[in-house]
C-alpha cells in the first residue's frame, strides 16, 4: 500500500533537499565547461559551423531515451514492488523526457535547414524521435487523465513497458521504411567524428545527464509534496464532515 511506505518518501525528501543544490551547482559547472569546449571546438570541414548544433542535438536525443529507460525501471518498481517512490519517479521523468525530445526535434530541424534546405526531412532518426515524443505526450496525457495517483501510476507503468518493447521495433521499422523511400542518403553526421569534436560532445552528454538528474530529483520532490498536499486536503475534507 502506498501509505505504509511513507517513511521512505520522507527520507527521500531530506536526501533531495541536501542533494539538489550540490547536484545543481555541479551541473552548472560541467555545462559551462562543456559549452566552452563546444564553442572552441574546430568546425567540421563538410558541415561548417552548423556542427555546433550537434552539441545540443545529440545530448538531447540521449536524454530523451534515458528518461524512457528511467521510466521503465520505475514502472517495474511500481508493478513489482508497489513502491510509491517508483510512481513518483516515473511521473516526474515524463515531462522532462518530453521536453528533451522536443529540444532534439527543434535542434534537428534547425540543423536540417542549412544542411538539407528544409526544416523537416523524414530522416529515420528524426522520425523515430517524433514517435518517441508522441509516446511521451501519451504517457503525460494518461497521468493527467486518471485522477487517483496510484492507479494512474499502474496504468502508466504498463504503457511505459509496452512502449519500451515497441520503441526498438519502431526504430527498426522507421529505418527500414526510410531506406525504402530514399534514394540518396541523408544523415546528420555523414563524416566520422574526430576526437576534437567527440570530447566536447561527451562532456556535453555528461552535463545533460547531470541536468536530467537534478531536474528529475527536483520534480520528484515536487511530486512528493503534491501528494502530501493532496492527502492532507482529503483528510481535512473528511474531518470537516
Amino acid at each position: 500500500m502506498a501509505l505504509t511506505d511513507l517513511a521512505n518518501p520522507s527520507r527521500f525528501l531530506s536526501f533531495a533537499n541536501r542533494a539538489i543544490p550540490w547536484l545543481g551547482g555541479f551541473t552548472v559547472i560541467v555545462l559551462a565547461f562543456g559549452l566552452n569546449q563546444a564553442m572552441s571546438a574546430p568546425n567540421d570541414y563538410q558541415q561548417g559551423d552548423t556542427v555546433k548544433i550537434m552539441y545540443l542535438h545529440v545530448p538531447s536525443a540521449w536524454l530523451s531515451m534515458l528518461a524512457w529507460a528511467v521510466m521503465s525501471v520505475a514502472a517495474l518498481g511500481t508493478l513489482v514492488w508497489r513502491h510509491p517512490l517508483a510512481d513518483v519517479a516515473a511521473k516526474a521523468a515524463a515531462p522532462i523526457g518530453a521536453a528533451f525530445a522536443l529540444l532534439c526535434l527543434i535542434t534537428g530541424s534547425l540543423w536540417g535547414r542549412p544542411e538539407w534546405g528544409t526544416y523537416w526531412v523524414w530522416d529515420a532518426r528524426l522520425t523515430s524521435e517524433l514517435v518517441l515524443f508522441l509516446l511521451y505526450l501519451g504517457v503525460i496525457a494518461l497521468w493527467r487523465t486518471v485522477e487517483d495517483p496510484a492507479r494512474a501510476a499502474r496504468a502508466a507503468a504498463i504503457l511505459t513497458l509496452v512502449g519500451a518493447i515497441d520503441l526498438p521495433i519502431i526504430k527498426f521499422s522507421v529505418v527500414w521504411w526510410n531506406t525504402l523511400h530514399q534514394g540518396s542518403s541523408f544523415g546528420l553526421t555523414g563524416s566520422t567524428i574526430y576526437p576534437t569534436m567527440l570530447i566536447p560532445l561527451l562532456i556535453m552528454a555528461v552535463a545533460f545527464t547531470l541536468l536530467f538528474a537534478t531536474l528529475h530529483l527536483a520534480a520528484m520532490r515536487n511530486e512528493i509534496l503534491r501528494r502530501r498536499v493532496r492527502t492532507q486536503r482529503l483528510m481535512q475534507a473528511s474531518t470537516a464532515n
Binding site: 509516446l135 501519451g138 496525457a141 519502431i170
Partner: peptide
C-alpha cells in the same frame, strides 16, 4: 487513440 496509434507505426 493517442496512446495506441504511435504504437502501431511498425
Amino acid at each position: 487513440a493517442v496512446l495506441v496509434l504511435p504504437l502501431t507505426v511498425p
